[in-house]
Design a binder for these strands. Structure first.
Lengths: 206, 206, 206, 206
DNA sequence: CATGAATGAGACTTCATTCAT
DNA sequence: CATGAATGAAGTCTCATTCAT
């Protein structure tokens, strides 16, 4: 027999979490649709079909909501991407997996990706006290930097500035959401092939 | 006797243009400094050292001002970049010139570049009625698309989807302002060399 | 067999009263700590360690809660002060007892006193429909008015306007919480001596 | 002939100052009428017959407005009271002048006095960053403290704690607005006589 | 041409209160 | 009895825009 306390604890936590998740989802969709600057709490609430005040009830403020959006997208993205990279053993294969998993995630959750880019580029980061944009930027590049460093040590990549190359690859990947927004019917697989080939050629030993 | 209408017409036009240019410059600097979302007409006016109302007098609204900012930056950018490309004769050299001139322009006018990126990514485009973001996007890629098409025909580039490759290269270039904002002491020349090499490798015949 | 109605009636009444007292205490402490204007139902509930809704369950609204706070503080104050006055037989001694007991009450229950002053001066009274501030004011002065009237009849006080003198004495006493709030280590005994002497001199026959 | 620059300078400054004064006056009246906590910017604007935004245009925020209200009331009060005190030469006469001028000011500007008390006691001070309530309290008592110290040195006052006596006198004076609010037809002259006599008796040498 | 006073919409947030569980 | 999710009103503030001067 399951004690009530557990049930209650779960169900209460469940409702709370469900609402928070619902609001975060609504925020993601709203930001993706109208852009960060026009994604007011009112609009987010309207999309979620709830009242304005309810967002304030579940989140301390817009900053916390946006922070949750980013944390969610990042966490989900990492959970999506990491296994695909870990499944590979060589840096070259891991780089391909990195690109492929990033694009697969965009395909699976286009709104999330657009929202993320909107927040990062739309001034949303400045609204998040306690978040250092420069440090976030560094964190974003870190996996690629490590991957490139290991790959160069293993002789699988040519010599290049790993930080610059990391930014190059991220720049290429980050351009995809923009492409998607202009052409929703975009053939992501073709994109993936083209990008993978280009990055391959740009990084392999000469 | 010189008619008043002429005098007025001329002087008005002159002052008018000077004011518009001054305001556009102030807008560029303000957007680059505080980001698009925080670049209010008030702040722009304050930076220009004029009153709020004067902007409204010279521009129909914020949309027209932002539109002018973009048009100006584009036009100046094209005027800066085009000669450097035209000075080259082969697609390969032109591609290198394209990248180099883009980064040189960023170095010469960092505020303009940052402002442009801020507007494009910060939701500013959506504030511009009559401007089709998709068409703007296409225009942005067009020079590269043509360059790649010509280069492939000449056998200087390998076979790839020219549109995708154009977006790849723009993505790489557009990542530079972000890098600059996180590291103002960035060595643009090194960046240029790395990017040029990477793009070279990614596009040349195998 | 004891009917449920009785059991419930009794236990409800008991719990009911305990809860109401707990909430009133929490309200007093909250008001004393953060001021009337910042003493929201949420904060009061948090201090009581209960949910927001429970206050609404036990009190018809904020007005009733504040009314209960005032009634409680008044009643407790009267219960504290009255015996000390009744223990004296002459108006002069009773006046001293009035002052002394008021200050002793402040010393014993500083939060209550601060809360009372906060409500009275912080606009709390206007939130209490059905309470006539003017009448409350009159009630506040009444004991002193009666005391002065009796004392003048007995020849123990000089001739003065009893209402004005009552307000003077209350003014002096009501200034003590303010002094306390600015200096928690205040020597109340010195205050008591100084005030008693001053009032003595101001009221005794010339 | 008066130059335009002067006229313009004056008239512009005049309009600005006139509006600010009008808004401050409306704030004073609103606070006096409905209490500090209910004196919203909306209500103040409505009383001034202007839009909400105009207050924000002339004042950086509610804090600045309230600060201006206090500064104005204080400055006007000091300008009203100081000459009456300076006209006297002995501490005893100055003390009487202090009390008399305070009550005269209340009679002349009842709303200002009520507003001041409302702000000080209604939590308004806590909304003013940069203002130390304890220091404000000390400043409020300072003139009396100095007056009593001088008077004791001159042998015109008996020995007592000057700070406590200062608070006693302020307490007596600060009780007057409350009396006024409950009885608008109050005979201030009688009040003044009673208070002056009482304070005289409480402070003169025994 | 230019100013700056003025407006009104809209944003975020807090709060008292209601209600299903 | 008690909870906490939910609402809607109200408050402060920012902003683009208009208009008399």
């Amino acid at each position: 027999m399951v004690p009530n306390s557990d049930q209650d604890g779960q169900s209460r936590s469940f409702i709370e979490e469900a609402r928070r998740a619902q609001i975060v989802t609504a925020a993601v969709e709203t930001i993706a649709e109208v852009g960060y600057s026009r994604a007011s709490m009112s609009r987010i609430a309207a999309r979620a079909g709830i009242s304005r005040g309810l967002i304030s009830y579940h989140f301390a403020g817009k900053a916390e909501l946006i922070g949750q959006v980013m944390a969610t997208v990042y966490a989900d993205g990492a959970a999506f991407i990491a296994p695909m990279i870990d499944a590979e053993t060589t840096p070259t294969a891991q780089l391909r997996a990195y690109i492929r998993s990033n694009l697969e995630y965009m395909r699976a959750h286009p709104a999330r990706m657009v929202a993320l880019v909107e927040i990062v580029t739309g001034g949303g980061l400045a609204d998040l006290p306690g978040i250092d944009p420069t440090e976030s930027d560094r964190q974003m590049l870190l996996p690629l930097v490590e991957l490139f460093t290991a790959g160069q040590a293993a002789g699988e990549f040519r010599e290049f500035d790993v930080t610059v190359m990391a930014r190059i690859v991220r720049g290429v990947i980050d351009a995809v959401p923009t492409a998607l927004s202009h052409d929703p019917d975009l053939d992501i697989d073709r994109y993936l092939r083209e990008i993978t080939t280009a990055v391959d050629l740009a990084t392999r030993p000469i």
